[in-house]
């Protein structure tokens, strides 16, 4: 594996770790953005240019901004006095460590070299567009419907409730 992979993997993992451990939630959102950008660069090293740039547009561009908005709207940037971790944090940590042990064991025990380790796939954005409106047109339409419904749903849920609607 090249040095680039190790650098990007370290960047992604440090960003991810920081985004769940830092005390200040605004710093968490910043670290989350670093992790998303690192993942997009990892996609690029895997010759998946379209997915990499979609990752940057959707996650670094939109989801990170949404998270910052939510943090500031809910005054989440004020650090609570009684700690940022739940009372049962040790259980969560044990479960996560167990899951990682199982996944790591499965990866190390089962992966053999696949036939395509060296050949670089030649896939252009043109091919992806053709596949999206050809073979995958039904999922594309369903995702469009889902995004519309999610937008309307998010607005409805977060709308101010009218006076008198209570009680």
């Amino acid at each position: 594996m090249s040095i680039v992979f190790y650098l990007l993997a370290a960047l992604t993992l440090v960003g991810g770790l920081a985004s769940v451990t830092l005390k200040n939630t605004v710093h968490c959102a910043l670290a989350l953005t670093v992790a998303f950008a690192g993942l997009a660069l990892l996609f690029l090293t895997l010759d998946a240019q379209f997915a990499g740039f979609a990752q940057i547009l959707v996650y670094v561009g939109a989801v990170a901004i949404l998270v910052v908005f939510a943090i500031l709207l809910t005054r989440g940037h004020e650090i609570p006095i009684d700690g940022v971790f739940s009372r049962t944090w040790i259980v969560g940590l044990v479960i996560a460590a167990g899951v990682f042990a199982v996944l790591g064991w499965a990866v190390l025990a089962s992966v053999h070299a696949l036939p395509n380790e060296l050949a670089v796939p030649v896939v252009t954005v043109h091919d992806i567009g053709n596949a999206l409106v050809g073979h995958y047109v039904l999922p594309l339409e369903i995702v469009a419907l889902l995004l519309t419904a999610a937008t309307i749903g998010a607005v409805m849920v977060a709308l101010h409730e009218k006076e008198g609607a209570k009680q």
Binding site: S19, C28, L93, A96, V107, V111, A113
Partner: peptide
């Protein structure tokens, strides 16, 4: 193999996310 290294990174990232989802008190986190 390269595939195994990517899968290990993904497994580690998944476990970090799971640990965060299970241990943090703030709903946004």
């Amino acid at each position: 193999t390269p595939l195994a290294s990517y899968l290990l990174v993904a497994a580690l990232l998944f476990s970090i996310g799971l640990a965060g989802a299970l241990t943090r008190r703030n709903a946004i986190l």
